[in-house]
Computed example of a mutant assay.
Amino acid sequence: MTSSTGLRKAVETYWAAAEARDWTAFGETLADDVVYEMPQSRERIRGKERYLQFNREYPGDWHAQVLRIVAEGDEAVSWILMREGIKESYAVNLFTADAEGRIVAITDFWPEPYEPPAGREHLSERY
Rank of each mutant, 00 (worst) to 15 (best):
M1H: 08
T2E: 07
T2P: 12
T5I: 09
G6A: 13
K9I: 04
K9Q: 11
V11H: 03
E12M: 00
T13E: 14
Y14D: 09
A16L: 11
A17C: 09
A17I: 02
E19H: 02
A20E: 10
W23Y: 15
G27L: 06
G27K: 05
L30M: 11
L30H: 01
L30E: 07
A31D: 14
D32A: 13
D33Q: 12
D33N: 15
D33T: 14
E37K: 08
Q40W: 03
S41H: 02
S41M: 05
R42W: 03
E43W: 06
E43A: 08
I45A: 10
I45N: 12
I45M: 09
R46S: 15
G47S: 10
G47N: 10
E49D: 15
R50E: 14
Y51H: 14
L52N: 02
Q53S: 10
F54Q: 10
N55R: 12
D61P: 01
W62T: 06
W62Y: 13
W62G: 02
W62D: 02
A64Y: 12
A64T: 07
A64Q: 07
Q65A: 14
L67Y: 03
R68F: 05
I69L: 06
V70G: 09
A71P: 04
E72V: 09
G73L: 07
D74C: 10
D74Y: 02
D74F: 03
D74T: 10
D74M: 06
D74I: 06
E75V: 12
W79E: 15
W79A: 07
W79S: 06
L81R: 14
L81D: 07
M82R: 04
M82F: 05
R83A: 14
R83P: 04
R83M: 11
E84S: 03
G85F: 02
I86S: 10
K87W: 09
E88T: 05
S89P: 00
S89A: 12
A91K: 04
V92R: 06
V92Q: 07
N93S: 13
L94H: 13
L94A: 12
T96E: 13
T96C: 09
E100C: 05
G101C: 03
R102H: 13
R102W: 00
I103K: 01
I103F: 08
V104E: 14
A105M: 03
T107M: 08
D108W: 00
F109L: 10
P111G: 01
P111K: 02
E112C: 03
E112A: 08
P113I: 04
P113G: 08
P113A: 10
Y114H: 09
A118P: 15
G119V: 11
G119Q: 09
E121I: 11
L123E: 14
S124M: 11
S124N: 09
E125D: 08
E125P: 01
R126L: 12
R126H: 11
Y127M: 05
